[in-house]
Design a protein around this nucleic acid. Sequence first.
DNA 1: GGACGTCTTTGCAACGATGTAAAGACTACC
DNA 2: GGTAGTCTTTACATCGTTGCAAAGACGTCC
Lengths: 341, 341
Amino acid sequence: MSGSGVRGTVTMHDVAAAAGVSVKTVSNVVNDYPHIRPATREKVQKAIDELGYRMNLSARSLRQGRTGIIGLALPELSLPYFAELADSVIRAAEARGVVVLIEQTGADRQHELDVLTSDRRQLTDGLIFSPLELGPDDADALKVDYPLVVLGERIFGGDWDHVTMNNVDAARAATQHLIDQGRRRIAVIGAHAGETMGSAALRVLGYQAALAANGIPLDPALIVEGGLWHRATGADCVARLVESGVEFDAIFGLNDALALGALHALHARGIDVPDPVAVIGFDDIEDAAYTSPTLSSISPGREQIAQEAVDLLLARIAGGGDPYRRVIADFTVVPRESTGV
Amino acid sequence: MSGSGVRGTVTMHDVAAAAGVSVKTVSNVVNDYPHIRPATREKVQKAIDELGYRMNLSARSLRQGRTGIIGLALPELSLPYFAELADSVIRAAEARGVVVLIEQTGADRQHELDVLTSDRRQLTDGLIFSPLELGPDDADALKVDYPLVVLGERIFGGDWDHVTMNNVDAARAATQHLIDQGRRRIAVIGAHAGETMGSAALRVLGYQAALAANGIPLDPALIVEGGLWHRATGADCVARLVESGVEFDAIFGLNDALALGALHALHARGIDVPDPVAVIGFDDIEDAAYTSPTLSSISPGREQIAQEAVDLLLARIAGGGDPYRRVIADFTVVPRESTGV
DNA sequence: GGACGTCTTTGCAACGATGTAAAGACTACC
DNA sequence: GGTAGTCTTTACATCGTTGCAAAGACGTCC
């Protein structure tokens, strides 16, 4: 049943010899070339099975100029959002017959730049890239000569495909949701000072828009800076918020990890959720449904993002100079206990 | 600065021509062959830089019979433990100069078997495999002709390297920790009926050992079955436990996801943690430190497991018929709020 | 029966790198 | 100055597969 002999020993030549046909015919059978006599196909298939032949993918890649591997560069898998995203991307890729090589960039700008030019790009047919640190100034670095799909909104207007979501609208919806629950003193945690294009900036923009639309004055003291969007940062933001003495009746975590950290910090201080303080996050990671209380959030259409990204990339790999596209995934507000619903 | 021309256009031949040397000399430079005149090396390097040459890794793989890619097969990345494990494996691999191709098997036995014989094995130099569903009966399927490192304890005694932890002792320690806090009616959630070799069985064994060592009678009603170790399963186990009317003052979740689900379900029913019910998990995922209350757990030495696994695999790939090894990682009990510490 | 078109199969030359073995350049030393 | 030994560089075959173009087989139609 299984192969005989040492690994990598059986080649198309062996199969061809065993089946009494030419190497090219074996290749044709393996590649489902249509014009093959059934008898021949059978002979070859039998030889393949008996010898336990497996195609040497390096050779095929060399010949075809394609590896069947796509790269996925993201900050880190230990952030639940990215783990779930990777899960979805791998599934989408598998459904389309390619595999995924994951590279972690940390939150390191240099590492993000390196990923774009690494030797490994020779190993992948294209790259799905989710940068955190690169900004508009780095647009040049993204002008690469291989298929590239960029996730997120940090960098606009380049010659590459984009899959993103409407961060402004989604953040506005999240804020509106809090306002609808009667909150007026809404803190935001995880803001990035000085940033203009990143998710943080855009989401804060949406927050401000919602306040304005409801005639609620903007209090800068309610906007809390926080660099890395980890749980620890969320907890830290809340600590600073509480210590500052500012009054607040709600917290908008710019992502779920921050919101989880916030829940933790509030709990530690004996402040209940949703009263007196409601909390909403962003990403709708699986955790959100299992915290105590459960966490309201914004679902960014993760599956959709993953599938669109893979489809765009594969289309680009297949060639065709289609104009670069920008896909905007749908979002939904997912109300849970933390906003008193 | 950057490459000129279409992707994949620049080969060693082009570099050789530009530098006025032979192809092999370029190869020698690229591979740090020691005997090269500095002037030559410089010429070649200059040509490489000017042309933006990148090595074609498929060609190298074909020639060398190695791809520099290792496979990592695990259930799913959306389970935090595996996401964190993947993170660690990727880091360990990167530090050693190889990259990681992740394949998800779901909790599907057939998919786990497929992964072992897939064409993709031709693309990887070896595989780190974390099976969930395969058992001792499948030992034959694991007799593969490529380097393999198995994580977890489901399958013993094969001709492959193993990295695992002492599930029995660790579970015993977790249970002992609860007992030390004065608990006597300790429920276990996530047990697998009929299993003898898997993590579930071994951890239940440890649980039983701890009870026995402390003279606490074993009540079968406290052992709750639960198939997939997801949060939802944990919640469901607790629901059944409560509905059964059995008294209990502690819950041992066989992994953290189960414990998180348990926390959720207890909270939903207004049952406080750690009093009247204490909870401990297993895996010490990042979440555990941020739940409310924070979750006590067993830290399995994830970094150590990842590094040992990669090291073993690379050693096996490098060759040498060393005897197969079984590495047992260290664990520690991490007490947090959920057990009243 | 012969010419033609379609169906199958084939041989050969790549794809881009590296191992081998040997040639050429150079140094040191007698 | 000649010789041996080391340092550098090279040509060529080769890894396993597929594209190309053409050859061979076969059936059809007049």
